[in-house]
Design a binder for these strands. Structure first.
Lengths: 217, 217
DNA sequence: AATCTTCTCCCTCAATTGAGGGATTGCATT
DNA sequence: AATGCAATCCCTCAATTGAGGGAGAAGATT
């Protein structure tokens, strides 16, 4: 029906006024068509099948099935559809959940129409779009989780020691480790002793704790 | 010297032709001034002090001190300066490193001048900017690290058990735990037994491993 | 009243672990 | 030749741990 390069967009949006505004913007812009607009996600499957969107513009705050759960459901059933979340809140937990649900972008509702159209085109071509403010939060989240793991000290463990430490962190007792890597029980114990000295710990649990927390394995 | 709202930009860029292009764009655009342009980061401190930038446009591939290390150094010395990394490569490891170094944005060199100016304004006002393609990679990285941690089973540990498990994961032996939380040694051992049953493990190291890997503590 | 859960305390026995000691081989560096 | 280091093996003793048993008190649920 549409020319090849028209991006087909479906809108899920609580507020009829916002929805009309979005629809007008889309239909008034060359290259974009709004093929469906819905005030709830309760019939999402039917609505998606009917409107065959390339990109879904999804409001996060909706009665019934909310935007994040709808994103999860749609992504599961139609993995090719790109979903752009729209929200008024810059809430860490929401961003987190939306990402986990498989959203391809996360923009604020005060985003200008031009930026919104750009964002739709970007996600359509495989990119992910964030408002700069949202991206800043994402990076903070990222650094909170990842950076502590990256900043690792080098304890100068030998290859054998690393190998044994890894088995220790799986919870394997030393007699079993000896069998596994074909060494005498005594030798394994000696290596473990050496590991403790190098990590400055005094027990297996402490070594495992340090190894996992500092990503030594 | 400049009007209040002029954004002062310093450029670190290997390639003199690219650098000239960037400088022309900046000085030709109202609201932006290029206060310094340098072909290496070897004198970064002096260069920064001289050019007093709000935003640094940083090439990632440079001889001597590379863009990522320079970012780390500048951020350490001048935390208020915002740094926008520019690169030709969409390399996971590089993005990762740049984020850890404290970069405020990461854009590709084929980004249009208009977008580049926007990005500079965005990072200047506290946002973080990514090309959609870069953002997509970041989200993939994010999901790889975070999602497995979020999908946690509930082992129905009681409060006491959680408390003791946490001390165990610090590597504390049971006699010490008993002293710490003012319980009899026997009682601590009983709780630990109970933890093992609920986590389906058979030793302290295994419990610690499971607790840390699945983020139970 | 009966049951369940949580939390508390105790005992025993065998296995595992931590800390100390000593010893040999092979390889690389000095 | 000498030194250092990783890797291997062994022994002992005391402490800790894992697995089994039993038991009581407080609180919630049925």
């Amino acid at each position: 029906m549409n020319a090849n390069k028209e991006i087909q967009v479906a809108i899920f949006e609580d507020n009829p006024i916002m929805m009309d505004a979005y629809r007008s913007i889309l239909n008034g812009s060359p290259g974009y068509t709004c093929t469906g607009s819905f005030t709830s996600c309760n019939n999402w499957k039917h609505d998606i099948e009917k409107s065959k969107p390339d990109v879904v513009l999804m409001d996060i705050e909706m009665a019934g099935i909310n935007g994040i759960n709808a994103t999860r459901l749609i992504k599961k059933e139609f993995p090719a559809i790109r979903i752009l979340i729209q929200t008024v809140f810059e809430d860490d937990a929401k961003i987190f959940e939306a990402l986990c649900a498989g959203a391809n972008g996360y923009i604020l509702k005060n985003t200008s129409p031009v930026k919104m159209l750009e964002a739709i085109a970007d996600v359509q071509s495989g990119g992910v779009v964030f408002n700069p403010a949202i991206a800043a939060k994402l990076v903070t989240l990222f650094q909170k989780f990842i950076v502590p793991m990256a900043a690792t000290v080098d304890y100068q463990l030998t290859e054998r020691e690393k190998e044994i430490l890894q088995l220790l962190t799986k919870g394997m007792p030393m007699p079993r480790i000896a069998e596994t890597i074909l060494l005498s029980y005594h030798t394994v114990r000696d290596h473990v002793k050496s590991i403790y000295h190098k990590l400055h710990v005094a027990s297996a649990t402490e070594a495992v704790s340090k190894a996992l927390r500092e990503n030594l394995v």
